Deep mutational scan, measured.
Amino acid sequence: ALRETGVIEKLLTSYGFIQCSERQARLFFHCSQYNGNLQDLKVGDDVEFEVSSDRRTGKPIAVKLVKIK
């Protein structure tokens, strides 16, 4: 799958939103999709991810998040 990059724009307890670098979009992500310690993730962090689609709504979502050092 194609990896994309973006910036954490909003972060809540169990989910957040990424502002994409490659496209004009804000993508939802669930915190279970982040492969690191959530305490280390904060607004403004650069992340890399794959784009999938929500099974219920069909909308694009970010999965398999990795923080870019």
Rank of each mutant, 00 (worst) to 15 (best):
A1L: 14
A1G: 06
A1V: 13
L2A: 04
L2Y: 08
L2C: 03
L2H: 15
L2I: 07
R3N: 02
E4I: 11
E4A: 03
T5Q: 09
T5S: 07
T5E: 05
T5L: 06
T5R: 11
G6L: 00
G6H: 01
G6V: 00
G6K: 00
G6R: 00
G6T: 00
G6M: 01
V7T: 14
V7I: 11
V7C: 13
V7D: 01
I8L: 09
I8E: 00
I8N: 01
E9F: 15
E9C: 12
E9S: 14
K10T: 07
K10V: 08
K10C: 04
K10P: 00
L11H: 04
L11K: 14
L11C: 05
L12S: 05
L12R: 05
T13Y: 09
T13F: 03
T13A: 03
S14A: 09
S14K: 05
S14E: 04
S14M: 09
Y15C: 08
Y15Q: 07
Y15W: 10
G16I: 01
G16N: 00
G16M: 01
I18F: 01
I18K: 00
I18C: 09
Q19D: 15
Q19W: 09
Q19S: 12
S21C: 06
S21Q: 09
E22H: 02
E22T: 03
E22K: 13
R23Y: 07
R23K: 06
R23D: 06
R23S: 14
Q24D: 15
Q24G: 15
Q24R: 13
Q24L: 07
A25M: 14
A25N: 03
A25F: 08
A25R: 08
A25I: 06
R26N: 04
R26H: 13
R26L: 13
R26S: 15
L27Q: 01
L27E: 01
L27C: 08
F28W: 08
F28E: 13
F28L: 14
F29P: 00
F29R: 00
H30K: 05
C31Q: 14
C31V: 08
C31T: 14
C31A: 13
C31H: 12
C31G: 12
C31N: 15
S32H: 04
S32T: 06
S32A: 14
S32C: 10
Q33R: 14
Q33I: 04
Y34D: 09
Y34L: 10
Y34E: 12
Y34M: 12
G36Q: 08
G36I: 06
N37K: 11
N37L: 14
L38G: 06
L38T: 14
Q39A: 12
Q39R: 10
Q39D: 05
Q39T: 11
D40E: 05
D40P: 04
L41F: 08
L41S: 01
L41C: 14
L41P: 02
L41R: 00
L41H: 01
K42Y: 10
K42D: 04
V43R: 09
G44F: 04
D45A: 05
D45K: 01
D46P: 10
D46L: 11
V47I: 09
V47W: 00
V47M: 14
E48I: 05
E48Q: 09
F49N: 02
F49K: 01
F49R: 00
F49Q: 00
F49S: 00
E50Q: 14
V51T: 05
V51C: 13
V51E: 10
S52C: 15
S53C: 12
S53K: 08
S53N: 06
S53T: 13
D54I: 01
D54N: 04
R55F: 07
R55T: 09
R55N: 10
R55W: 09
R55D: 08
R56C: 10
R56Y: 04
R56D: 04
R56F: 08
T57A: 12
G58H: 08
G58R: 04
K59Q: 09
K59C: 05
K59A: 07
K59I: 06
P60A: 09
P60N: 13
P60T: 08
I61F: 08
I61T: 08
I61D: 02
I61A: 12
I61M: 10
A62H: 01
A62S: 02
A62L: 04
A62V: 10
A62N: 01
V63C: 15
V63K: 09
V63H: 10
K64T: 15
K64I: 02
K64W: 02
K64F: 09
L65Y: 01
L65P: 02
L65K: 01
L65T: 04
L65F: 02
V66C: 12
K67Y: 02
K67W: 03
K67T: 10
K67S: 14
I68P: 10
K69V: 03
K69T: 05
K69W: 14
K69D: 07
K69M: 11
